[in-house]
Design a protein around this nucleic acid. Structure first.
Lengths: 344, 344
DNA sequence: AAGCACAAAGTTACCGGTAACGTAGATCTC
DNA sequence: GAGATCTACGTTACCGGTAACTTTGTGCTT
């Protein structure tokens, strides 16, 4: 049995200090580079750190100092929707580069899941929370207010947020799409999206869209896929349902590009081509749009950037630096060629 | 100035106990439902918990009891690749339902990022770690071994893992695709993927693929997109590069379905249709495949289930229950109609 | 050579819970 | 009715760090 040079199991600061022949406090100072020790002492301590494979216990540090942890709780509805995955990627990369860790929570689009997650994650004394959406359970709001930590609400811009909001105005983006399609002459419009029992950004888009279409004298036929992820197949299936409902539709607006692509494929499968036979509009300018032969009419949103800005907002709040109450990262309409001008 | 009923800021167990007129220990017992207190005492304590809005400090609990935390570190290369997003979703949902929290780490496909993340996350005393891939930095391996906690390596099945492995045999999946395409008569094959400076599952697939193709007397022309996310556009662009290289290629195997779709679109843009003019094969059976007019030849992998099983493995290890050293969740080839039988 | 400033340590107490053990009073047993 | 047992608590110590304070030693002034 040969003795291993590196110890298994936990090595505490006290053991390092004992091995180096100094006090815990001196070892602590060395490890934090705080100063107040000689070069010789530093070398002695660091040598033992390496030898013993010491890993600091951040739990103890966070707990002891009253200094907050480096956790940031991030809640996202689901990851099946590429858009949210990108936002999360933007957040985690930026947070990570500043030494913070993302504690993930998938809320499945329900306020109850969100509340329960908030309760749990708060009990871990996070530095702050980034949560998706602006509508929360009343209890959740109380929890967040009482916690007294930075809260960044993302996605749907909230001009009077709990703390800080980063996102875009989804209502406006829907409205702009509605106005654009109305302007092209479309009157009989359709909408295909998913439905979760929550007021969310997608429903805000739909509201804005309907307002613009109705203002223009048109109508909107809606089709929802219940409790589904806003991905390709629900777009395909939802379109089938919508077209089977009997009402004639000249142009369909989808919850996002993935659903729009699914819809495009369904239309093609029954011999309808866009934009000749039917108009197709998506939302989000998702990666797939870049490879389609005809540019998909959509709304461009800087997803990754949105995540990064949310993380920057969190870091600013944690450093005590100022940050706007509401930061709009903006969107713009991409006309595309999956719709066309039609006779009013 | 009206007094608010609910206190802001932190309320400690000691304060609750004092308010209820009992000792900290009794309050602690009530909160944990451990027994050893009267109904009257329970009610008194719970009333104060509600009144003061007490939230337990799990940091202190985890720190104190020596009981491990409920954090599970999960490292994933990136989220731009839908496949990983789905795996993560499977993991987080399952972990969450057992009361564990996911601490996310995006390693950007580099062993250095992974090592630095492992070091950081270990210092938070997680209950366990789920990490993607089987090749790690030597230091990272030491860290994991010394940490003495459950480690589940996912994605690329490892028959002699650090601890537990959950995944599929990527080499075999590539081999099977290679054999299938060879069997159809394809000899001049192409591969389009991304390249990161790490031995990863995708390169194992390519190795298996090449072996099978070479065994069948064929050749493989490779095209890599450096440091890119395996998504639609790199597939499009990589195909352009491959076809521009001059060598003639009858059929292209892609790193995944998203890239295959990108490739399909590029081919179409230059007048090549699959399977008539060129064969196209993907990998992963991603959501988009469900809405394409011609079934994409691919390898089906149960992504979400893989994540769930990984989480189950972790939970089993944490509960001290047995779990296989290596659990193969399996794959199967989907013949599809984006390839065809050709003259040998 | 006494006095002082400062560098380089060590000591003590504490963060918020929980394990382990102690104890007073009620109930049971024979 | 004395001892045994049980219930319902309270006390103490500790987890692994760090803040705040104290002590020791060294060199420099004057």
């Amino acid at each position: 049995m040969t003795e291993k040079p590196v110890r298994t199991g936990k090595v505490s600061l006290a053991e390092v200090a004992r091995a180096a022949g100094v006090s815990k406090m001196t070892a602590s100072r060395v490890l934090r580079g705080e100063g107040g020790y000689s070069d010789k002492t530093r070398d002695k301590v660091m040598a033992k750190v390496d030898l013993l494979g010491y890993l600091p216990n951040r739990l103890a540090t966070a707990f002891a100092g009253g200094t907050t942890s480096t956790f940031v709780g991030v809640s996202i509805p689901d990851l099946g929707n590429e858009v949210f995955a990108q936002v999360l990627e933007g957040i985690d990369r930026k947070l990570g580069s500043f030494g913070y860790q993302t504690v993930l929570g998938l809320t499945q689009h329900t306020a109850e899941e969100e509340e329960s997650w908030i309760r749990t994650v708060l009990s871990w004394q996070p530095a702050g929370l980034i949560i998706t959406g602006r509508s929360h359970a009343p209890n959740a709001i109380d929890l967040l207010k009482n916690a007294g930590l930075p809260v960044v609400e993302i996605w749907d811009l909230n001009s009077s947020p709990l703390d800080t909001s980063v996102g875009i105005n989804h209502y406006d983006s829907g409205f702009e799409m509605g106005r654009y399609l109305s302007g092209l002459g479309y009157r009989a419009l359709g909408y295909v999206g998913t439905w979760h029992n929550t007021a969310n950004a997608a429903s805000a888009r739909l509201d804005g869209f309907c307002k613009a279409v109705l203002d223009g004298g048109g109508t909107v036929e809606r089709q929802f896929c219940l409790n589904d992820t806003a991905s390709y197949y629900p777009g395909y299936y939802g379109t089938e349902q919508l077209l089977a409902s009997g009402t004639s539709v000249e142009c369909i607006f989808y919850q996002n590009d993935a659903m729009a692509f699914g819809g495009l494929q369904y239309c093609r499968s029954i011999g309808l081509e866009a934009p000749a036979d039917i108009g197709i509009a998506g939302w989000g300018d998702m990666p797939i749009a870049a490879v389609l032969p005809a540019r998909l009419t959509s709304i461009h949103v800087p997803h990754i950037r949105l995540g990064q800005v949310a993380a920057e907002a969190m870091i600013a709040r944690l450093s005590g630096e100022p940050f706007e109450t509401a930061r709009n990262v903006g969107f713009h309409l991409i006309p595309g060629s999956s719709v066309r001008r039609v006779a009013g």
